[in-house]
Amino acid sequence: MKGIKTRWSPEEADLWTKEDYLTFVISPLIYFLLALGGIWCLLLRWYGWVVLGVSGLLIWLMIKIIDPKLKALSHDYEKKQKQFLEELEKIERWEN
Protein backbone atom coordinates (compact mmCIF):
# COMPACT_ATOMS: atom_id res chain seq x y z
CA MET A 1 0.00 0.00 0.00
CA LYS A 2 1.45 3.31 -1.10
CA GLY A 3 2.45 5.63 1.73
CA ILE A 4 1.95 2.95 4.38
CA LYS A 5 5.06 1.47 5.91
CA THR A 6 5.07 -2.30 6.10
CA ARG A 7 8.63 -3.09 7.22
CA TRP A 8 9.59 -1.85 10.64
CA SER A 9 12.73 -1.97 12.68
CA PRO A 10 12.01 -2.37 16.42
CA GLU A 11 13.21 1.18 17.11
CA GLU A 12 10.92 2.64 14.44
CA ALA A 13 7.96 0.59 15.62
CA ASP A 14 8.33 2.03 19.12
CA LEU A 15 7.48 5.50 17.83
CA TRP A 16 3.99 6.87 17.25
CA THR A 17 3.56 7.43 13.54
CA LYS A 18 0.91 8.17 10.94
CA GLU A 19 -0.01 4.47 10.85
CA ASP A 20 -1.13 4.78 14.47
CA TYR A 21 -3.08 7.97 13.84
CA LEU A 22 -4.84 6.42 10.85
CA THR A 23 -5.82 3.50 13.05
CA PHE A 24 -7.19 5.91 15.68
CA VAL A 25 -9.53 7.29 13.01
CA ILE A 26 -10.53 4.04 11.31
CA SER A 27 -11.12 1.97 14.44
CA PRO A 28 -13.96 4.03 16.02
CA LEU A 29 -15.47 4.44 12.58
CA ILE A 30 -15.68 0.65 12.30
CA TYR A 31 -17.51 0.40 15.63
CA PHE A 32 -19.91 3.12 14.53
CA LEU A 33 -20.64 1.37 11.24
CA LEU A 34 -20.97 -2.04 12.91
CA ALA A 35 -23.61 -0.64 15.28
CA LEU A 36 -25.62 0.98 12.47
CA GLY A 37 -25.05 -1.78 9.91
CA GLY A 38 -26.10 -4.45 12.41
CA ILE A 39 -29.38 -2.68 13.15
CA TRP A 40 -30.22 -1.95 9.53
CA CYS A 41 -29.39 -5.49 8.40
CA LEU A 42 -31.70 -6.98 11.01
CA LEU A 43 -34.42 -4.65 9.77
CA LEU A 44 -33.69 -5.96 6.25
CA ARG A 45 -32.70 -2.56 4.87
CA TRP A 46 -30.45 -2.97 1.83
CA TYR A 47 -28.08 -0.21 2.93
CA GLY A 48 -27.42 -2.18 6.13
CA TRP A 49 -25.49 -4.72 4.05
CA VAL A 50 -23.56 -1.94 2.36
CA VAL A 51 -22.60 -0.43 5.71
CA LEU A 52 -21.56 -3.84 7.08
CA GLY A 53 -19.56 -4.45 3.91
CA VAL A 54 -17.76 -1.13 4.32
CA SER A 55 -16.98 -1.94 7.95
CA GLY A 56 -15.54 -5.29 6.83
CA LEU A 57 -13.32 -3.51 4.31
CA LEU A 58 -12.21 -1.05 6.95
CA ILE A 59 -11.29 -3.89 9.33
CA TRP A 60 -9.12 -5.36 6.58
CA LEU A 61 -7.55 -1.98 5.91
CA MET A 62 -6.88 -1.32 9.60
CA ILE A 63 -5.15 -4.65 10.08
CA LYS A 64 -3.12 -4.08 6.93
CA ILE A 65 -1.96 -0.71 8.30
CA ILE A 66 -1.25 -1.54 11.92
CA ASP A 67 -0.40 -5.24 12.05
CA PRO A 68 3.17 -5.07 10.68
CA LYS A 69 3.97 -2.41 13.23
CA LEU A 70 2.36 -4.28 16.13
CA LYS A 71 4.26 -7.42 15.14
CA ALA A 72 7.58 -5.59 15.10
CA LEU A 73 7.14 -3.82 18.40
CA SER A 74 5.74 -6.90 20.13
CA HIS A 75 8.63 -9.06 18.96
CA ASP A 76 11.21 -6.61 20.23
CA TYR A 77 9.43 -5.95 23.50
CA GLU A 78 9.05 -9.64 24.37
CA LYS A 79 12.84 -9.96 24.32
CA LYS A 80 13.16 -7.34 27.04
CA GLN A 81 10.13 -8.39 29.04
CA LYS A 82 11.92 -10.81 31.37
CA GLN A 83 14.30 -8.11 32.54
CA PHE A 84 11.44 -5.62 32.99
CA LEU A 85 9.50 -8.16 35.04
CA GLU A 86 12.45 -8.73 37.35
CA GLU A 87 12.69 -4.98 37.92
CA LEU A 88 8.98 -4.78 38.58
CA GLU A 89 9.23 -7.43 41.30
CA LYS A 90 12.12 -5.54 42.88
CA ILE A 91 10.00 -2.39 43.05
CA GLU A 92 7.15 -4.43 44.55
CA ARG A 93 9.45 -5.77 47.25
CA TRP A 94 10.77 -2.25 47.95
CA GLU A 95 14.25 -3.29 46.80
CA ASN A 96 14.49 -0.64 44.11
Binding site: Y31, L34, G38, I66, D67, L70, S74
Partner: peptide, 18 residues
Protein backbone atom coordinates in the same frame (compact mmCIF):
# COMPACT_ATOMS: atom_id res chain seq x y z
CA UNK B 1 2.21 -10.00 23.57
CA UNK B 2 1.42 -6.33 23.03
CA UNK B 3 -0.19 -7.29 19.71
CA UNK B 4 -2.40 -9.91 21.36
CA UNK B 5 -3.44 -7.38 24.00
CA UNK B 6 -4.49 -4.86 21.33
CA UNK B 7 -6.52 -7.32 19.31
CA UNK B 8 -8.17 -8.86 22.36
CA UNK B 9 -9.54 -5.54 23.56
CA UNK B 10 -10.59 -4.46 20.08
CA UNK B 11 -12.32 -7.72 19.12
CA UNK B 12 -14.07 -8.22 22.47
CA UNK B 13 -15.58 -4.76 22.27
CA UNK B 14 -16.54 -5.15 18.59
CA UNK B 15 -18.58 -8.19 19.65
CA UNK B 16 -20.26 -6.06 22.31
CA UNK B 17 -21.22 -3.46 19.69
CA UNK B 18 -22.73 -6.17 17.47
Amino acid sequence: TVRDASYSIWAGSALIVI
